[in-house]
Amino acid sequence: MSTASSIDLDAIQGIVREKASLPGALLPILHAIQGRTGWVPEEAVPLIADALNLSRAEVQGVLDFYHDFRREPPGRHIVQICRAESCQAMGAQALETHVKSSLAVDFHQTTADGSISLEPVYCLGNCACSPAIRIDDEVFGRVDSNRFDTLVDRLRAEEVSA
């Protein structure tokens, strides 16, 4: 896990340099940094601003505007629960209640063991298999409380064996 003390500024500088010439480069740069580090550290902001000839405020504004970009290190896994209408019609609210109590966190929080960050999401495009959740880059459909517990148990078992 990346922490504030182990930020690889050289890697971030490399990403910025590589992508700075793209038209409208800011989102691709932020995605690439987050893809590598898991979040976008504060120290990246002036580097990006310099390379794109923007003010720090402009870069910070974009970072804050989009729900995806994280300004703090997340847990080792991101779990997203869909809150949108189709999933609600199939019991997403009950699932959400179960998830929050079983992980003992609310949305935008990370479990005490640093394993899972819980986030809401508004539609994963899996609406014919509602309720849907996403764990890291994998989407799961027809998720009820039991299936959720199985998926989380598997995630934790993989962490132990890894």
């Binding site: 038209p23 409208g24 480069a25 800011l26 989102l27 691709p28 932020l30 995605h31 794109l52 402009e58 504004g61 974009v62 505007f65 989009y66 729900h67 995806d68 970009f69 999401v121 508004y122």
Partner: peptide, 25 residues
């Protein structure tokens, strides 16, 4: 292909253009 960043509003066409230009949507 470019990737959005979780903002529903960027499906609005002018907000999408702003986002493609690297700005807030």
């Amino acid at each position: 292909v470019r990737m959005g960043a979780g903002a529903y509003i960027c499906g609005e066409e002018t907000s999408m253009l702003e986002s493609l230009e690297g700005k807030r949507g």
